[in-house]
């Protein structure tokens, strides 16, 4: 990956300006991976496990993690998870606009992700519910973002947020219940 040096450098700096520069690169990479998946560039027996896109992106972009401080690495995962969420939400917003015959979509969307629209989780509803959740408990919404959109495990999430795994686990269960109720009606 020709960019990896540059990105490692940006991550090492870890300041706001560096993160801003990083964002489009990460965003594009996420797009690229998602598209590649959709186009079935990966064979069925390819080694790709249900690993997070984000991890995949990280490996492609950064490669060796040793150079980067844990804190900055965590920032990378936060950014990536948030961008992933953005990609899916943009897509869903436009999809909904189309269905309702609403105004034209102003965001360019990723065809590669069109199969999300009919999947188990209605991304847009989840996104809105997450925003509501963030208003009452920011950390819970971050946990969901990292886990669902970023694909991180409980332990990884705990490390990123610098809290204990038990806390993440408890928050995760609660957030799940809260979101489920929000999305599926009263219980």
């Amino acid at each position: 990956m020709e960019k990896s040096g540059e990105i490692t450098e940006l991550l090492r700096k870890g300041d706001a300006a560096a993160l801003e520069e990083l964002m489009p690169i990460v965003y594009r990479e996420l797009h690229r991976i998602a598209e590649a998946l959709f186009r079935r560039e990966y064979r069925v027996n390819h080694t790709l496990q249900p690993t997070a896109l984000v991890n995949e992106a990280y490996l492609r972009l950064v490669g060796n993690m040793d150079d980067v401080s844990w804190q900055n690495r965590a920032q990378f995962f936060c950014i990536a998870a948030r961008l992933m969420r953005q990609i899916l939400v943009n897509h869903a917003v436009a999809g909904r606009a189309e269905k309702r015959g609403g105004g034209r979509s102003f965001v360019a969307l990723d065809e590669a992700l069109s199969f999300f629209s009919t999947r188990d989780v209605e991304i847009l509803a989840l996104h809105e519910a997450l925003e509501a959740l963030a208003a009452v408990d920011r950390r819970q919404s971050e946990i969901v973002e990292l886990r669902f959109f970023g694909g991180l495990t409980i332990d990884e999430t705990a490390a990123v947020l610098e809290v204990s795994s038990a806390t993440v686990k408890r928050d995760w269960e609660m957030a799940k219940a809260w979101l489920y109720r929000e999305l599926r009606g009263d219980y």
Binding site: Y42, P50, R119, R147, G151
Partner: peptide, 10 residues
Amino acid sequence: SAAAVVHNSL
């Protein structure tokens, strides 16, 4: 995860 959804569709 969102990623797994991608993968499953594969």
